[in-house]
Design a binder for these strands. Sequence first.
DNA 1: TTATATATTTCGAGT
DNA 2: ACTCGAAGTATATAA
Lengths: 250, 250
Amino acid sequence: MKCQVFENPSPKKAYRVIEEGIRKRVLIVILACCSASYEGRARSRLEPGERLIVIKPDGTFMIHQDRKVDPVNWQPPRSRCRSYMKGGKLYLESIRRSPEERLEVEIHEAHLVSCYTARDRHELEVAGHERDMGDMIMEHPHLIEKGFRPVAREYSTDAGFIDILGKDENGSLVIIELKSRKAGVSAVKQLKRYLDEFRDDRRGVRGMLVAPSITHDAMEMLEDEGLEFRSLEPLRELRSARGVTLDNFS
Amino acid sequence: MKCQVFENPSPKKAYRVIEEGIRKRVLIVILACCSASYEGRARSRLEPGERLIVIKPDGTFMIHQDRKVDPVNWQPPRSRCRSYMKGGKLYLESIRRSPEERLEVEIHEAHLVSCYTARDRHELEVAGHERDMGDMIMEHPHLIEKGFRPVAREYSTDAGFIDILGKDENGSLVIIELKSRKAGVSAVKQLKRYLDEFRDDRRGVRGMLVAPSITHDAMEMLEDEGLEFRSLEPLRELRSARGVTLDNFS
DNA sequence: TTATATATTTCGAGT
DNA sequence: ACTCGAAGTATATAA
């Protein structure tokens, strides 16, 4: 069966269903009043309240409150979950190794326990991140400026990796820092650090921040440092759609 | 009623339940085969699969696959969700303003639709982050070393905010950079930048990285720069537990 | 396994 | 509304 649902189960019934769900590696969804204690990289305590608990087949464990995107408590994939009864009450425990972390949940009252055999082999396809901008510039260098030629990508320096290293039409070195979203002062500082690596022979070395937009403070700092800004939107075309486009042009 | 559950509802029934759930601002949990398109800061496409969909009363919208902690698609709190029927099919749409973002979900088959009036006024109480380390050092400066006196906290410089500025028993300035987790090279670089701000009169200015541990590379860089490392675990006692401790001592 | 950098980061605090 | 920095960040990738 695709989906099993139990409304207001007894602690014992909930226990049995959850144990079987963990064993069979299905997606478990619980609506319940619970409290939680976490100890690991940090430590936390969550007092009783009605929440959504999710146990995924990959070991992911989440407690979601009725607000925010992030779970209030969680464990990452590959964590080990088990349930147990103590003093007539139902508990859930999720343990992670390396780092050692433990999340313990006390179920005060379960309103819904449900198991779902979710079949899903598709991965998300995304476009519009920094990687795409880099691809786009390597393929179409003129987007930076006429005569620009990329020399290296992910060029390693002591200050970190330079996104794109190239030369302009005069043969001057150009250090390019990419941001897929509005660039802030931190991006300018980063670019500045790369340039410092070339300080010894800085004559003619240009630093360029490439992003869809830039904050006011960042632009001021950029100008003070004699660096440049080039506005560029990340390519937001999905790979599947790109195929269609290429077909159209061929 | 605390919890309403509908198994294998027709598209129309699911539509009515979801619309009412949104209107009444309850937590909506859906198990369904769906596909999704997102457009906003980036763009994405998710082909059909069986997933968990959550709509929270605060406007949060999430699609969870059977793996990973993060949702595969989502919208943040204050987004506006609505559902609609088109060609006999059920759709969900979540829109956010500023930045303008849109997530559209097509429900191919709903296996479970459930509404939960979750009462939860408790917030998570956490201990063990950077802020706690700062508090601890301000209260007990000797944790740094004998004779250490804090002078300022969050001291503003062109290179950013120095976590703690203090003086040692000889009156030399000490710049302290805090990390609540293992410190890497980036933390050393950050500390180095603060020290550069004091380079003009650097005689006797010390730089100290305070963290529970440090990576090998970071330690090497630290030593090369003549900086110091002090091992310190962040205070991991919950505020509620601290009260008990104080009572015990008073 | 550890270290590094990105992310539709999210979230909170300050301006 | 914008900006900045921390987070139990999560996650992918390279070393």
